[in-house]
């Protein structure tokens, strides 16, 4: 991937993420504390700090990342960010960009099958539907 940088005024992704999340992504100083705190970082294709960087420079590849769906909204990064950024809201905004186009991340049929198989608690099913469907 070639490195590119979009000027802030024309950075559509940044504008959208800031609008939905209410967070100021450009405050990020790329210290990496979110990444070292994140329990899911090892499983991600973009690290939490990488997500912030991508949004900041307008790299839309982050929208196709697995990371935004792996983020469990655990708020560990949120409580530790020295710039006071709520990164959990940033990943929620990135998910919302998909979900608001009516592109669901899971399908109900599959959930039902698993539910029968494993006796999933309602909080697991409802929270997944809230996070992964529009």
């Amino acid at each position: 991937m070639s490195y590119y940088h979009i000027e802030e005024e024309e950075n559509e992704l940044l504008a959208k993420v800031e609008e939905i999340s209410g967070e100021i992504v450009t405050l990020c100083e790329q210290c990496g504390i979110c990444t070292t705190s994140c329990p899911m970082a090892d499983e991600m294709d973009f690290t939490p700090a990488g997500i912030m960087h991508a949004v900041k420079i307008g790299d839309k590849a982050v929208l196709d990342s697995k990371a935004i769906w792996i983020c469990a909204s655990c708020f560990t990064c949120t409580v530790r960010c020295p710039r006071g950024i709520d990164l959990a809201k940033v990943t929620e905004a990135l998910r919302q960009i998909h979900l608001r186009k009516n592109k669901d991340h899971i399908n109900l049929e599959e959930v039902k099958e698993e539910e029968l198989e494993e006796d999933l608690p309602p909080i697991a099913i409802v929270s997944a539907l809230r996070k992964f469907t529009g």
């Binding site: 329990p39 899911m40 499983e43 769906w69 792996i70 469990a72 909204s73 655990c74 560990t76 991340h105 899971i106 959930v111 698993e114 999933l120 697991a124 099913i125 929270s127 997944a128 996070k131 992964f132």
Partner: peptide, 19 residues
């Protein structure tokens, strides 16, 4: 106070298993 993986149990169970 670390996350168990939460609702990833529905979509990424293998991650929760490792957690």
């Amino acid at each position: 106070n670390e996350c168990c993986g939460s609702y990833n149990i529905i979509t990424n169970k293998e991650i929760v298993v490792e957690r």
